[in-house]
């Protein structure tokens, strides 16, 4: 089977992100960039599926500037077979444009399964996979917790993290699946993997070459800092804590 998996370059989830004084964007000094953690889980799941099936291929895709090539190389070093970078400036993108770019790639590549992270930890939009599935008219399982291929590898049974528990759905391929936290523990790229990745094919294409209309449906016009919350007081004992909660905060 053929699996298309996405790898988005995002700010390190452990970096403290603050708005620039001019409020035009975030401070990026001393902020590392890496693959979105949920994309790492998607790449890992693709690798495990390839191990369970015969003649499978994993194509890793990213949309972004030259720098985002690093995330493709990381996925290739983890074990993906080849990469495609769709060259675009991040400012020219919204979730919908990315979904339509991926739709064009799916039309060309004809994957059986598209695996994506459930959300990118920078934009927190949680939309691309669902938009893509609808544009393609494909079934979807978001927030995957367990993924099992069904007989003949023609579909999957996916357990999903939902409000109130875990739901199971059954899908027929081709399908779109997004990965949640508990699905797997992504591997690190090995040194030989990193060496091999340098020789794996990586192609570049532009949205224009794919015939994608770049009209934005959503535009960010400004940023503001979140409402601040200041540190309160330290209490010394349990008794003092209960006293404060009862008389000051009046919440017990």
């Amino acid at each position: 089977m053929k699996i298309l998996v996405t790898a988005k370059r995002v700010t390190d989830p452990n970096s403290k992100i603050v708005l620039r004084p001019d409020r035009q964007g975030i401070v990026t000094d001393n902020v590392d960039f890496k693959m979105n953690p949920f994309c790492e889980i998607a790449v890992e799941e693709a690798l495990r599926l390839r191990d369970k099936t015969e003649d499978s291929e994993i194509v890793v895709v990213t949309v972004g500037d030259e720098e985002t090539t690093k995330e493709i190389r990381t996925a290739l070093a983890m074990g993906a077979d080849r990469g495609i970078r769709v060259a675009a400036d991040e400012k020219s993108l919204d979730s919908d444009v990315v979904a339509r770019i991926l739709m064009k790639l799916c039309e060309q590549e004809k994957p059986d399964l598209v695996l994506l992270g459930k959300q990118a930890i920078d934009g927190d939009n949680n939309q691309v996979a669902q938009l893509l599935a609808e544009y393609l008219g494909w079934p979807q399982a978001t927030f995957a917790y367990k993924f099992e291929l069904t007989e003949g590898n023609k579909g999957a049974r996916v357990q999903r993290e939902v409000d109130g528990g875990v739901e199971t759905v059954s899908l027929t391929f081709p399908a779109v699946v997004t990965t949640d936290l508990r699905l797997n523990e992504p591997r690190y790229a090995s040194l030989p993997g990193i060496m091999k990745a340098k020789k794996k094919p990586l192609t570049e294409v532009t949205p224009a070459e794919l015939g994608v209309d770049m009209t934005l449906k959503v535009t960010t016009v400004a940023f503001e800092p979140p409402p601040g919350r200041t540190a309160g007081v330290k209490v010394k004992t349990v008794e003092e804590l209960i006293e404060k909660l009862a008389t000051e905060a009046k919440c017990i």
Partner: peptide, 16 residues
């Protein structure tokens, strides 16, 4: 107004 970066930035977005 919607949160980005785990709510560390609030974006003002316009739908076109």
């Amino acid at each position: 107004k919607r949160p980005m970066w785990a709510g560390n930035v609030i974006a003002h977005v316009k739908i076109n």
